[in-house]
Computed example of a mutant assay.
Amino acid sequence: MIAPLTTAVRDQPLPEIAETVIEVRNLTKRYGRNIVHQHLDFDVRRGEIVSIVGGSGSGKTTLMRQILGLERPTSGSIKVFGEDMSELDKDEARLMRVRSGMLFQQGALFSSLSVFDNIAQPLRELGKVPEDLLRDIVMLKLEMVGLPCKHASKMPAALSGGMVKRVGIARAIALEPELLFLDEPTAGLDPQASDEFVELISALHRALGLTVVMVTHDLDTMVALSTRVAVIADRKVIVAAPVEQVAGFDHPFIREYFLGLRGRLALQGLSPERRAKLPPEALEPASEAIPLRTAP
């Protein structure tokens, strides 16, 4: 299920990396006595695809939710597009949400709404889009994610897992956001659907000039898409760099995650230029039984 957009932008250059658009400083997040983040710093620059990885319970999704304003930090500051999220009034917060799109894990579609109405929902919240224009926008978004318009009338229960995620992406980009947040975007997909979804994200990144923040545990997805990888361990971001540099960072989680058999398989799918920057341990022989996806 390759979207026409994927073919159209395949040779288009990646967006230029520019100014910082997300700035997290000295962030602490507690739930009662449980400290999830402590003095955490994190940055994202315009045009990047930054993957957030970490062990179970490390607070990856919690960090994303705080950046989106869905949760408040216990202390510290979060600035998005230079605006402190804790100081926004109701109208400013609404405008900030329009500039961001979110794909929740498993798509999170409204089960009682059709595909069309799920995608139209953010547009209808604005209350200013005529119905004929709204229909054109929805159909365009469906086409962009590689779904025929005939699926617009279907209910989410009639869709495959990959189609649900594509509808979720169509909804996330309905308002032409500058930031796109993805929570485990390829979880639950078979290998072919996962590869196609990665191609779709890459195409949207190029076509729309998106800045993408992604939580993932899928090594192939992370290696194929990320311009940088931010690793959360010990309640903070211990390193944020291109994956070939992260793999050489001395920390128990990184050694286990990146330099185990599965990690080496993924890393050896990098381009020759990037493989040359990997630590020697990452280049140790790995089984060729699992097909490798070549990263840009």
Score class of each variant (00 low, 15 high):
residue 7 T to G: 15
residue 11 D to I: 01
residue 15 P to Y: 00
residue 18 A to G: 03
residue 19 E to P: 07
residue 20 T to N: 07
residue 27 L to D: 03
residue 28 T to W: 06
residue 28 T to F: 06
residue 30 R to C: 08
residue 34 N to L: 14
residue 38 Q to V: 01
residue 44 V to A: 11
residue 47 G to Q: 04
residue 50 V to G: 11
residue 54 G to D: 09
residue 55 G to D: 02
residue 67 I to V: 09
residue 77 S to E: 14
residue 77 S to I: 01
residue 79 K to H: 14
residue 80 V to L: 11
residue 83 E to I: 00
residue 86 S to E: 04
residue 90 K to F: 07
residue 98 V to M: 12
residue 104 F to D: 07
residue 105 Q to Y: 05
residue 108 A to E: 04
residue 111 S to I: 00
residue 114 S to W: 04
residue 114 S to T: 15
residue 114 S to R: 08
residue 114 S to K: 06
residue 116 F to R: 10
residue 118 N to E: 00
residue 124 R to G: 01
residue 129 V to A: 11
residue 133 L to R: 13
residue 137 I to S: 08
residue 138 V to F: 00
residue 139 M to F: 14
residue 141 K to L: 04
residue 142 L to K: 08
residue 143 E to D: 15
residue 144 M to D: 06
residue 147 L to C: 09
residue 150 K to L: 05
residue 150 K to Q: 12
residue 151 H to L: 12
residue 157 A to I: 12
residue 157 A to E: 12
residue 163 M to W: 04
residue 169 I to T: 09
residue 172 A to H: 03
residue 178 E to R: 13
residue 185 P to S: 08
residue 190 D to P: 07
residue 192 Q to W: 11
residue 193 A to V: 08
residue 199 E to H: 13
residue 202 S to E: 14
residue 203 A to D: 08
residue 203 A to L: 04
residue 204 L to K: 07
residue 206 R to Y: 02
residue 207 A to H: 13
residue 211 T to C: 14
residue 216 T to D: 13
residue 221 T to P: 03
residue 232 I to A: 11
residue 234 D to K: 13
residue 234 D to T: 02
residue 234 D to S: 13
residue 237 V to S: 10
residue 247 A to H: 14
residue 249 F to M: 09
residue 250 D to S: 15
residue 251 H to C: 01
residue 254 I to Q: 09
residue 257 Y to R: 07
residue 259 L to R: 09
residue 261 L to N: 04
residue 262 R to W: 06
residue 263 G to M: 06
residue 264 R to S: 06
residue 266 A to F: 05
residue 267 L to E: 11
residue 267 L to Y: 07
residue 269 G to N: 14
residue 270 L to A: 09
residue 270 L to M: 13
residue 271 S to E: 11
residue 278 L to Y: 01
residue 281 E to G: 07
residue 286 A to V: 00
residue 290 I to T: 10
residue 291 P to W: 05
residue 293 R to G: 09
residue 293 R to T: 14
residue 293 R to D: 02
